[in-house]
């Protein structure tokens, strides 16, 4: 059985990761894997999209890939 609730997909958690270092969408999705949050793939994508729109992080291209980044 998946251990849901082990990791929570919240605005605060996303903010903390992006403040620490720039991340791609894939990096973020890796932090909030469905098997760790208990969310469905669709819910993960929707919630993460809403959080990113709200946080409005800086966009940086690093090594050809778009990264999101937040200042403290």
């Amino acid at each position: 059985t998946p251990s849901s609730g082990e990791v929570q997909l919240t605005e605060e958690a996303v903010r903390r990761y992006l403040t620490r270092k720039p991340m791609t969408t894939k990096d973020l999705l890796k932090k909030f894997q469905t098997k760790r949050t208990g969310l469905s793939s669709d819910a993960t994508v929707n919630v993460l999209a809403q959080i990113l729109k709200r946080l409005n992080p800086e966009r940086k291209v690093i090594g050809d890939k778009m990264h999101f980044s937040l200042k403290e």
């Binding site: 894939k26 999705l29 966009r59």
Partner: peptide, 20 residues
């Protein structure tokens, strides 16, 4: 071959399209 992670990243980027 695209993994589930790739599909989710693509979906997320599509969702953020006008934003990115």
């Amino acid at each position: 071959s695209s993994s589930e992670a790739d599909e989710m990243a693509a979906a997320l980027e599509a969702e953020l399209n006008d934003f990115m």
